[in-house]
Design a protein around this nucleic acid. Structure first.
Lengths: 233, 233
DNA sequence: AACCATTGCGTAAAATTTACACTTTAAAAT
DNA sequence: ATTTTAAAGTGTAAATTTTACGCAATGGTT
């Protein structure tokens, strides 16, 4: 156990960063959860998180959590909300800054960190009981991603490198929890000209091969600067 | 000076809440700023803020700040963002949770708190140099309110009790920084049926008196529950 | 009583969204 | 080698929404 102590003239809360990493497996939307090894809430499932170090930014802390607790790196992260109810942690006052991100489950092999019994992807329709106020945090994240996907190219960020339009549609449908018309989805998407078609096509599919696209970030940023509102769904 | 000290096994950052209170004077959008009495950044203008007390929620802290530093109460507040760059405060590591709100300037008489030289409304087009990273925080708030007003009935919350449609439009124009068509604004607004017309009209205006309305919160919550997207502008 | 400023309503044209059917392609089955 | 299967990709007409305006109504002012 550490022997050093930190003393302040006024009370300071502890600050943690908790991460909500959504994972898309081509079909459904999942979320990465860990099973806690230690008290409090030992053996319960929870969002991965860590106390913020003295000299790291909140976002760096989120990156560190993901690296250490899930073997995940290079993820586009976005700050979700800060949860600060005085009694949300039984040990002491803990304020938690939540970050969320979205990845393809296939891109990472989850490896449980030192303080975890297990780590795995859970379908967002089958979430177990969670430690602390993590269910509420997760619910906030689901609401946010559902709202956000309507007018921001989420999923483009994640669909790193290349993707087909039907794949992107699958993601939209998984997040929104409803089906969309193929033809209209494609039409609207292409009309905003934020996709660049690649010469490649899908290989070895038992039907017409879909063309690969990539996100045209430059074009997107021009549109954003012009204040153009992209309503995708 | 306090004699008590607070000791922890791990380093704890200080946590503050800073408040961005936008004020509408019927014409333009303002923001409430205080002039600091003490170091660091003595005499500079800044957002009102305070360290979070041990047993208060973040939102309660924001309410306390507004009461103490600006004589403002009963404001609808929304969490904006949490700023946590390790070097944003020269004294020690300070993480700041920002809250924003919107009021009518006429509804409050600003009174400077103990640790302030002055407090006043500044037009958002004439912001002075600000302490800490408060300019960045304010900019984030302006972006947020501009984005938010498009699809959420901000300003209804604030237009406490009653308001006329042209008054509400003035607010929208002040926030968005552009003019809107009177007839279409009214049409769209009324079509979503979140306003209740009152029997009263304006008094003593040198032209046709506008009718007063109030926000129909119940109806609004029904729409939200149904997931209906209100695009107001 | 005429004037002025602003509210309030209506309508036609333009743009966007929605609903839906057929053709194309690549592999797998016959 | 031909047919079958499954999903990609394209077009269009109808419905809906948004946009752009003109004009009457109202209440104090001159």
């Amino acid at each position: 156990m550490k022997e050093q102590f930190y003393t302040y003239q006024y009370p300071h809360p502890a600050v943690t960063v908790d991460c909500i990493i959504f994972g898309f497996d081509g079909q459904n939307l999942k979320v990465m959860l860990i099973q806690r090894k230690s008290e409090p809430f030992a053996k319960m499932w929870a969002l991965p998180g860590a106390f913020v170090d003295e000299r790291e930014s909140l976002e760096s802390c989120a990156e560190r959590v993901l690296q250490k607790e899930g073997n995940i790196s290079d993820v586009y992260l976005e700050q979700l909300f800060t949860f600060g109810s005085p009694s949300r942690d039984p040990r002491e006052r803990v304020i938690s800054v939540a970050y969320m991100g979205l990845v393809k489950t296939a891109d990472f092999e989850l490896i449980a960190g030192n303080d975890e019994l297990q780590i795995k992807w859970w379908d967002i329709s089958e979430i177990p009981e969670l430690a602390f106020d993590h269910f509420q945090i997760l619910q906030t994240a689901i609401d946010r991603i559902r709202g956000k996907i309507r007018y921001q190219p989420i999923g483009f960020e994640l669909m790193n490198a290349k993707f087909t339009i039907p794949q992107l549609q699958q993601l939209y449908e998984a997040i929104l929890g409803k089906t969309l018309d193929r033809r209209n989805f494609r039409k609207k998407l292409l009309s905003m000209q934020i996709l660049k078609q690649l010469p490649e096509k899908q290989q070895n599919v038992a039907h017409k091969a879909a063309s690969y696209y990539e996100f045209d970030r430059e074009r997107y940023e021009v549109l954003m600067k012009e204040g153009i509102y992209l309503e995708l769904v």
